[in-house]
Amino acid sequence: MKELVVENLSKVYFDPRLGERVTALDGVSLRITPGEFVAVAGPSGCGKTTLLNLIAGFLEPTSGRILLDGREIDGPGPDRGVVFQSYALFPWKTVLENVAFGPRMRGLPRAECEARARRWLELVGLGHVANRYPRELSGGMQQRVGVVRALANEPEILLMDEPFAAVDAQTRMTLQEELARIFEERRPTIFFITHDVNEAVFLADRVLVLSKGRLREEIPVPIPRPRRWAALVENDSFKALVGRVLQAVRTA
């Protein structure tokens, strides 16, 4: 079982414009067990992206440790798949080549990479755009590709930094339901960052509230799955939980 453990993690930036040090993360500890969906919510600038970038290995911590399966992480790696807010699809590769990229980097035979990529694209209803280029797709479709590209590489944990923040509200709800469905069917481990409290409660098993670089509160979400918006918008326990998280974010 591959568990992600974050121990007493701090990150201090030097801001050359202000000429001073900025503490973005201040002694954060957390633990994510396999098959768990954990969301981090918090106001802008509280350190969410910093936390995710540290776990992804894009940044080095100032102090503290990050362990995956008991081993300290060292730079980015295919055991931690990342979904970016800006999609970050390779514009010179087709949708299929984008999704097949991870398996190909792992040295799998070309035919198998493509077959796997095709299976994943069909799972999110994108089989028909496999040979298109990303720029020919809508934002919502591009982010579906972004999610599937990370999943097709079978990471131990999926790291998502406000992946649905750049699409319109309607598409966002569809994407959230799709992600919920994929999670219910396959139980990947997901670490999801958002400033949208509704999104956090809808998706996660557990919501962590981050503020000024510290974890303030941890709110379990015991709403049964499958979760769909139609059933949850009027659900009292959903609304109560959203209220609780919102309260925590605002007073933190």
């Binding site: 290995g57 990342v82 699809l89 390779f90 980097m105 590209r149």
Partner: peptide
């Protein structure tokens, strides 16, 4: 970063 975390 995307390439690196996909194993490149």
């Amino acid at each position: 970063r995307a390439a690196a975390s996909l194993g490149a």
